[in-house]
């Protein structure tokens, strides 16, 4: 197994997700569903690592991808004006994907995964809406929220099929990747609302400014991930694949 093998499988999963939610009008106005390749990698990780795998699980990760795409579409809605045809159809594409994940699992009778994914949608919505709460959250609360937003759907899949050994690695890695992305946007002056909230909550310690704090936090997380990888029993090629994608 090499990086090409991994990439081919990720590409195939992406195509399958597109195929399951194909809709002529939505495709025309809103394009393909938004899927994150890093998340797709973690959905496939048990398969790559040689764990028991079957059609039910593959269908399961397709629906995990569809749920993530549904919520990602809704993240594109403008706060105050969604009156353009594209925006209106973006609302509907998210709803359509949400109906499709449910329909796919209902047709195969996978009620357990339906339950897990619906719970993850509830939890994600609760965390995504935090940026609009008047309450002040501590910076660690925001890190928890990012973790839920980035990883909850996959976590539920892992928990249902007893893939717990990958849970911490996946959570820390996806948190790192999101923070790195937020940091890049911050440097370019395009901070997300979530990052702005983090900045508001930031209390300077040891004369560090927010950017230095974030870099230090990322260093700690990367060390944690490296340690987890070191003691993990996952295949060496997979450890290498993960490590190569960490920008230090």
């Amino acid at each position: 197994m090499d990086a090409t093998y991994i990439k081919n499988h990720i590409e195939q999963l992406k195509k399958d997700i597109y195929r399951y939610v194909q809709h002529k009008t939505l495709l025309k106005y809103t394009g393909n569903p938004l899927v994150d390749e890093n998340q797709l990698f973690y959905m496939l990780l048990p398969f790559f690592n040689g764990d028991h795998w079957d059609d039910e699980k593959y269908e399961g990760i397709i629906t995990v991808g569809i749920v993530q795409a549904s919520l990602a579409e809704h993240g594109l809605i403008n706060e105050y004006d969604a009156t353009s045809k594209e925006q209106q159809l973006t609302v509907l594409s998210g709803d359509y994907y949400s109906g499709r994940y449910y329909e796919i699992l209902a047709n195969s009778g996978n009620i357990s995964l339906i339950r897990q994914l619906s719970e993850s949608v509830v939890l994600r919505s609760e965390h995504e809406i935090r940026v609009y709460e008047p309450r002040q959250y501590a910076i660690d609360d925001w890190l928890d929220s990012i973790t839920v937003i980035e990883t909850e759907c996959i976590s539920r899949f892992y928990q249902l099929y007893n893939y717990d050994q990958y849970l911490n690695i996946m959570q820390i890695n996806l948190l790192i990747l999101r923070l790195q992305n937020e940091l890049l946007n911050y440097r370019e002056g395009n901070s997300s609302l979530l990052l702005q909230k983090m900045i508001e909550s930031f209390v300077p310690v040891d004369h560090l400014n927010f950017e230095q704090y974030l870099l230090k936090k990322l260093d700690v997380l990367i060390q944690q991930l490296q340690e987890l990888l070191r003691i993990s029993s996952i295949k060496a090629e997979l450890k290498q694949y993960i490590a190569e994608r960490l920008i230090r």
């Binding site: 619906s118 509830v122 919505s125």
Partner: peptide, 22 residues
Amino acid sequence: WNNRVAMHTGNFIFGRAIQYVS
């Protein structure tokens, strides 16, 4: 509130609906 809050609220309600029926 605003459109985003409405999107999250709708998703939360849909999530609860499916959680309940499960």
